[in-house]
C-alpha cells in the first residue's frame, strides 16, 4: 500500500537562526533538537539560510464544564499556543507565513484530590510542550526552500 520506513529526518536547510519573542522555552528545545538532527543553529541571522521566529508561547487554563447537579467545577481545559513564522534570511521574504500551533487537552477535576490533579496538570502541560515541539519540527521539515541563487 505504498508505505515505506521513513528514511532520514531530512531538514531542507543546513543552517538556521532561531528568534524567540517571549517563547524562550520552546525556542531552546527546538534549537537543541535541530542541532541533534544535523542543522547548525547560528547565533547571527546573517550566517543562516532561514530565520525561524517563535512568538507568544502561552498555556491558557479555562473552566470547561461545571456539574449540572452541584454547579461546581468538573473539567479544566488547557490550551497550548505558539506562533511560528519562517523567513528567508537573505531577503526576509516569508517562507512560511504566520501559523499557530495550538493544542487542546482537558482533564477532569476531583475535589478530593486537588494536589494530585495539580500534578496531573503539570504532566499534561509537559506532554503538550513535547507535542508542540514535534509539530514545529515537522513543519520545518516540510519547508519549501527557495531556489538557492
Amino acid at each position: 500500500c505504498g508505505f515505506q520506513l521513513r528514511g532520514t529526518i531530512g531538514y531542507p536547510m543546513k543552517t538556521a537562526y532561531l528568534q524567540s519573542e517571549n517563547a524562550n522555552r520552546i525556542t531552546t528545545e527546538v534549537t537543541r533538537l535541530l542541532q541533534d538532527n544535523g542543522v547548525t543553529v547560528t547565533n547571527k541571522s546573517e550566517d543562516a539560510e532561514i530565520i525561524v521566529i517563535l512568538r507568544n508561547e502561552i498555556i491558557d487554563r479555562r473552566v470547561l464544564s461545571v456539574s449540572a447537579i452541584t454547579g461546581r467545577l468538573e473539567e479544566i481545559e488547557l490550551n497550548f499556543r505558539v506562533e511560528l513564522e519562517v523567513q528567508n534570511a537573505k531577503d526576509k521574504r516569508v517562507l512560511q507565513d504566520k501559523q499557530v500551533v495550538s493544542l487542546l487537552r482537558d482533564y477532569s477535576f476531583d475535589e478530593t484530590a486537588v494536589l494530585a490533579k495539580d500534578t496531573e496538570e503539570q504532566v499534561i502541560k509537559e506532554d503538550m510542550f513535547r507535542d508542540a515541539t514535534a509539530q514545529v519540527l515537522r513543519r520545518l521539515q516540510m519547508l519549501k526552500m527557495p531556489k538557492s541563487s
Partner: peptide
C-alpha cells in the same frame, strides 16, 4: 494518601510509568 490519585485515562496515559500521580 497525601497527594496521590489515579490519572485520567488518555492516550498520553497509555505510556506512563505509573497508573498513579504522586
Amino acid at each position: 494518601i497525601f497527594d496521590t490519585a489515579e490519572y485520567d485515562l488518555s492516550f498520553g496515559q497509555l505510556f506512563r510509568d505509573n497508573r498513579f500521580i504522586g
